[in-house]
Amino acid sequence: MSDRSQTTGSLDEEGGGQEPDALRRKLLKLAGAAVALTLAPGVTVLARDLVVKGSGGHKTPVRYGLLIDANACKSGCESCVRACQDYNGLSHDPGPDNAQWIRKVTIVNPKTGFSRSFPVMCQHCENAACVDVCPTGASFRRPDGIVLVDKHRCIGCRYCLMACPYKARSFVARNVSDQKPWAPRGKGTAEGCTMCVERVEAGKPPACVAACNRAGHKAMVFGNLHDPKSAIALRLSEVATTTIRADLGLGPSVHYRGI
C-alpha cells in the first residue's frame, strides 16, 4: 500500500501555443481533408451504383418476380399463408415474436370504403434496404433477383428489420428444432421469404403460388420478369400494376394489381 503514497506528477500537455486565428484556419483545412477522406469511399460506392443501375436494360437474364392480383384474391382465404408455413416449417400461430414470411393484409380507404385483401411477403427489391444496411453482407441479392439471408454470416443485429418498409423480415427468437431440410432457420438470425428458392430452382413455382392456384383463385403469377415471353411479363405489359411504396424507389420484384 505504501507505494500508492508516492504521487506521480507529470507535466501538463503542450500545445495551444499558436494564435487562435491561425489555429482556426488550420483546423478548417484539416476538417476539410478529413471530411473528404471519410466521404470519398462512400461516394465512390454510390457513384458506381448510379452508373451501373442507371444504364437501363436488363443486366441479368433472370429476375424472378410475382404478380399478385388483389381483385382475384379472396378475402378470408389463407391458402398461401398456410402453404408457406407448411412448406418452410413455420408456426401456424401468429405470436408477436413468431415469423410470418407471408401474411394477408387488408387495406381500407376510410374516405371511400374501398377495401382489398392480398398477401404481402418479401418484395425482393432491386435496391433492397435490408441488403444496404447489413454490416456483413448476410442480407444479399442473388443474381436471379431473390433476396436471402446468409445465416452463416448473420450476426443478429436486426438492422434489416429496422430498414425494411414491408415488415418482411423477422428475427428468430426461440430455439428451432424441426426445420425442413430445404429451409434452414435458427435462433439469433434474421429471416424472411425465400421465394421458395429450392422449389424455384427445381422449376416449380413458390409454395404460395401453387396453393393459390390449387384453391382456384389464380391470384398469383410467378415467373421471370426479364423474359418478355413469360406469362408474368406478358401480363405486366397488359394490365395496370403498381408496387407497394413505389415512392421509395426500391424496385420490388412483387407487383400488385387492384390496390
Binding site: V176, Q179, K180, W182, R185, K187
Partner: peptide, 9 residues
C-alpha cells in the same frame, strides 16, 4: 444444426 435439420425429411 442450430439452423439445419438434423434428420432427413
Amino acid at each position: 444444426f442450430d439452423c439445419h435439420a438434423a434428420v432427413p425429411h
